[in-house]
Simulated assay, not measured.
Amino acid sequence: MNAAMGQTPLDIDVAIIGAGPTALFAAFECSMLKLSCVLIDALSEIGGQCAALYPEKPIYDIPGHPAIEGGALVAALDAQIAPFGVPRLLGQRVETLAGHRGAFTLGTDKGQVVTARAVIIAAGAGAFGPNRPPLEGLEAYEASGAVQYYVRRRADFAGRRIVVAGGGDSALDWALSLSDIAEKIFLLHRRDRFRGAPETLAQIEARVADGRIEKVVPYQLHALHGASGQLDAVEIIDLEGATRRIAADTLLPFYGLSTDLGPIATWNIDTIRSTVPVTPSTMETSLSGVFAIGDVATYPGKLKLILQGFSEGAMAAHAIHPIVHPDQALHFEYSTSKGVPAGS
């Protein structure tokens, strides 16, 4: 079920805000405990940052997978909850939250109303978007695809002359990855020092030596040149004000993400610097009946790893069970003995 559910109010046990990997696994855990749930996400597809930012980038710390691409991980998690028929409201953001433990009402920006006994906030870093460089005429180049902030399909960049701007992991990783298929990679940074693992930096130097990557330091972006959204050159400037033009048809600025809790910050829930403090044993927030998991949740010893988010989803689901079924004891069973619905 997608965002086309219309305006009919939806009554559910658990409303899960977010549809990234942590949210998907939380839906599985809730479903295994026979708690009905719905996934609500402002993005038009499930997967969160895995789908939006790095669907073709391998992840190395998912148990049982020496390496798995972000898109493949999302697909596997989606297949895992398929037997339960979990509805999802995509392309709409939860704007309002009212009520109390056992009886919450949520409203989205598309007019959808959801009533739920409990709420799980699995919103990742909150609403996120790229930090965009302050360049004149940027919008036209973004619209044409000449300027992009995410690499969804490597094949789209074959044969291109690409300026990769930034000095962190994303810039370095994509410069390396795309150097195999691009005509030329220009790696631009305002300093001659990059923030990356020693092995990554060594690989960069090797690609510089064989001519596939050219380091352009210390420079910053200054202007874009082209017509009708088609990029011909990227103008850069050094610390002394001297400019240089690089013939290029693609600019990939990797200056990090700007994050915002959005409406969550207005829901009378304690927050700390765009994160939500929780009780580690239950993942419950300061608002009884509302839980937070994944990157948005914080507590002493917190690790921002997908695998920890999976564990948090399981703990939240078990803590929610007595809210939904106060007179029913939860007899925990391993999935190997309990199984999942037929058709999985």
Rank of each mutant, 00 (worst) to 15 (best):
E69C: 14
A79F: 04
Q80L: 12
A82Y: 08
Q80N: 07
F84Q: 10
L106V: 04
I81P: 05
Y54S: 00
A72S: 15
D109M: 02
A76Q: 10
Q49Y: 01
L39H: 06
G71P: 07
D41K: 06
S44E: 14
F104H: 01
A67E: 13
F104M: 01
R88P: 04
V86N: 03
I59Q: 12
E95R: 14
I68T: 13
P83T: 08
D109I: 10
R101H: 09
V94W: 02
D109E: 01
I59G: 04
C50Y: 08
T108G: 00
R93H: 10
F104V: 02
V113Q: 02
I59N: 10
S36N: 11
V38C: 10
G99Y: 08
P66T: 09
V86Y: 04
I40C: 02
A82M: 13
C37A: 07
P63W: 07
A103E: 07
G85N: 06
Q92V: 13
I59S: 03
R93F: 06
E56P: 04
I40M: 00
L97P: 03
G91N: 14
V113T: 13
G102N: 07
P58M: 12
P66G: 12
F84E: 11
H65K: 14
Q49A: 05
C37I: 10
Q49G: 00
A52D: 05
E69R: 14
V113I: 10
F84P: 12
I68V: 15
V113G: 00
L97D: 08
I40P: 01
G71N: 08
G102H: 02
Q92N: 10
E45N: 06
K110E: 05
G71F: 04
E95K: 09
G71I: 11
G64K: 13
I40V: 03
G99D: 03
P55I: 10
A42R: 03
F84T: 06
A72C: 09
R88S: 15
R88Q: 14
I46Y: 01
G48R: 08
P87Y: 10
V74F: 06
A72H: 15
Y54V: 03
I62V: 14
H100A: 06
V38F: 08
A98T: 15
V74A: 14
A51V: 02
A98W: 02
R93E: 13
H65T: 12
L73V: 13
